[in-house]
Amino acid sequence: MEWQFFTEVLVGGLLSGVMYSLVAIGFVLIYKTSGVLNFAQGALLLFAALTFVSLTERGLPIWAAILLTLAAMTAIGALIERTVLRPLVNQPPITLFMATLGVSYVIEGAAQLLWGTQVHGLDLGIDDLPLEIGGVLISSFDLFAAAVAGAMVAALTLFFRYTRIGLGFRAVADDQLAALAVGLSLDRIWTAVWTAAGVVALVAGLLWGARLGVQFSLSLVVLKALPVLVLGGFDSISGAIVGGLIVGAVEKLAEVYVGPFVGGGIEGWIAYVAALGFLLIRPSGLFGAKPVERV
């Protein structure tokens, strides 16, 4: 009985961890190619979810709403890249980080100015019934989210492996100067990356929105993604997945087994402390590239 409860908590944690990974992947895409820790990813996620919900509420069919939202996300991504990051090329990363923080204010404000501040329900048509698998109860919505995340990672992997633009992306991530030297267009690749990050934001936004309701606090899920990123390494997609699983599991287990003894509410920091302890052993995360220094 005790064992079964533990498994339930663990599986629930792992599955909710997949949701964190979804957000973290958006960060990784941009960090890998341009070295920017894009704090606006949360705001993008909010914007995507809010736009989609508002469009469907205005009677648009789902496929049209998805297409329109995608178009909007692409436009926003390209706009940020053009107007904010391009002029700041070669600035220290902390300056770029600050700039994306400013961008996130703008997007959050604009999203709510455009679509209003009330909370929207988002029904993806998936019943959140508990399934019993091998005597363990699992939320079917969590399973669905995990499946979506898995599909997205598979799609991204295929994209990077088998398309020209994906190959270019890997080249830029590897060495920007070399990529320029062989004639790759950084413009096109960066635009593609921001588009991809927009798609990821849309998927994550829809799943998180269905979970929490589409509202301002959606943009705070970045704070859940940051420990995932340091755990997995800022530049690794598989790291984001594994990091998400670890953070999700640690959070749920700590909440159930440690929380009652210290008065609860520990989910706000436990992931950070866990990530911190972990980093002391591996300073570049699980899969992060080790920095090589020249003296």
Binding site: F234, W269, L279, P283, P291
Partner: peptide, 28 residues
């Protein structure tokens, strides 16, 4: 103390541990 091992954004994110932990302690 983590700064002795961590650099850059890894350090920056781990300082958020202080942010959330301290706030939690004063609340609890």
């Amino acid at each position: 103390l983590p700064s002795l091992r961590l650099r850059g954004f890894y350090l920056a994110v781990s300082t958020l541990a202080a942010q959330f932990f301290v706030q939690w302690v004063f609340n609890k």
